[in-house]
Simulated scan of single mutants.
Amino acid sequence: MASFNPFQFIQEVRQETSKVTWPTWKEVWITTIMVLIMVFMAAIFFMVVDQIMGWAVNFVLRLGR
C-alpha cells in the first residue's frame, strides 16, 4: 500500500486549484439570478399542478356521494 504524505497532498491540491478557471463576480451574479428565476418558475408550476390535481381529486370524491 502506498504511503500517504500530507505535505505532498497539499502541494498537489494547490497545483490543481491553480488550474481551475474561477468565475467572475458578474458570472456568479448572473447564474444566481438565473437559478432564483428557475426556482420561482418551478414553484409556480408545481403550485398550479397541485391545485389542478386537488380539484380533480375533489371532483372524483364528490361523484361517490
Rank of each mutant, 00 (worst) to 15 (best):
1 M>H: 04
1 M>K: 08
2 A>S: 10
2 A>I: 14
2 A>C: 04
3 S>Y: 04
4 F>T: 02
4 F>C: 00
5 N>T: 01
7 F>M: 07
8 Q>A: 15
8 Q>V: 13
9 F>N: 07
10 I>K: 09
10 I>D: 06
10 I>H: 02
10 I>W: 07
10 I>E: 08
11 Q>K: 12
11 Q>W: 05
12 E>P: 04
12 E>R: 15
12 E>T: 04
12 E>Y: 02
12 E>V: 00
14 R>F: 13
14 R>D: 13
15 Q>W: 02
15 Q>H: 08
15 Q>G: 06
16 E>T: 09
16 E>L: 11
16 E>Q: 12
17 T>E: 10
18 S>K: 14
18 S>Q: 15
18 S>A: 15
19 K>N: 09
22 W>M: 02
23 P>D: 01
24 T>A: 01
24 T>K: 07
24 T>E: 00
25 W>P: 11
25 W>M: 12
25 W>N: 14
26 K>R: 10
27 E>I: 02
27 E>N: 06
27 E>F: 00
27 E>Q: 15
28 V>A: 11
28 V>Q: 06
28 V>M: 07
28 V>H: 03
28 V>E: 03
29 W>G: 00
30 I>K: 14
30 I>T: 13
30 I>Y: 05
31 T>Y: 02
32 T>F: 12
33 I>E: 07
33 I>A: 14
34 M>K: 12
34 M>H: 09
34 M>T: 13
35 V>Q: 10
36 L>T: 13
36 L>R: 06
38 M>I: 10
39 V>K: 03
40 F>S: 15
40 F>P: 00
40 F>Q: 05
40 F>L: 11
40 F>Y: 14
41 M>D: 08
42 A>R: 09
42 A>K: 12
43 A>K: 06
43 A>F: 11
44 I>P: 01
45 F>T: 14
46 F>C: 01
46 F>T: 07
46 F>E: 03
46 F>A: 00
47 M>C: 05
47 M>P: 01
47 M>K: 07
48 V>L: 11
48 V>E: 03
49 V>E: 14
49 V>I: 11
49 V>R: 15
49 V>P: 00
51 Q>A: 10
51 Q>D: 08
52 I>K: 13
52 I>M: 12
52 I>W: 07
53 M>G: 02
53 M>S: 08
54 G>N: 14
54 G>M: 04
55 W>M: 08
55 W>Y: 11
55 W>C: 00
56 A>Y: 07
56 A>E: 06
56 A>D: 03
57 V>H: 05
57 V>Y: 07
57 V>K: 10
58 N>F: 07
58 N>P: 00
59 F>N: 05
59 F>T: 08
59 F>S: 11
59 F>P: 01
60 V>T: 04
60 V>L: 11
61 L>K: 15
61 L>S: 11
61 L>V: 07
61 L>M: 11
62 R>F: 00
63 L>T: 09
63 L>D: 01
63 L>S: 04
64 G>F: 10
65 R>Y: 05
65 R>A: 09
